[in-house]
């Protein structure tokens, strides 16, 4: 069961790396072009209220304890780490949350890029 989760995550990460490589190739050598420049993506409290329940819980928790890993969030929400990881990545795709890597850990935080 755990192994399956790990493989899924590796696959997911590989896909992401692939997508990023594609972008880099398409845009010369500029990494992460045109990403997250849309200020309407910022996650304020009104946007928080309009999220579906499961994502709202994850996002509210991230406001409270972020930057945090999926595991940190799962500890608070008492859901599976893989579930929170999935929700967090959904929030990343919506532009509300950003993630970065530190060593072997992936941290998430509320998108706070100034426009």
């Amino acid at each position: 069961m755990i192994e399956k989760e790990i493989i899924e995550e590796i696959l997911h990460n590989l896909k992401e790396i692939n997508a990023k490589l594609d972008k880099i190739i398409l845009n010369g050598n500029m990494p992460y072009p045109d990403e997250e420049i849309n200020s309407s993506d910022s996650l304020d409290v009104m946007m928080l209220l309009s999220l579906p329940d499961h994502l709202r819980t994850t996002a509210t928790t991230l406001f409270e304890i972020g930057p945090a890993t999926a595991e940190d969030i799962a500890e608070v929400t008492r859901k599976e780490r893989a579930v929170e990881s999935n929700y967090l990545n959904q929030l990343v795709r919506m532009g509300h949350v950003e993630k970065y890597r530190e060593g072997r850990k992936v941290y998430f935080h509320i998108n706070n890029k100034l426009c």
């Binding site: 309407s40 910022s42 996650l43 304020d44 509320i110």
Partner: peptide, 14 residues
């Protein structure tokens, strides 16, 4: 103030 500012305001309160 825009939503970005309000989002940061919430973080600053917390």
């Amino acid at each position: 103030k825009d939503r970005k500012w309000q989002s940061n305001a919430l973080k600053n309160i917390i």
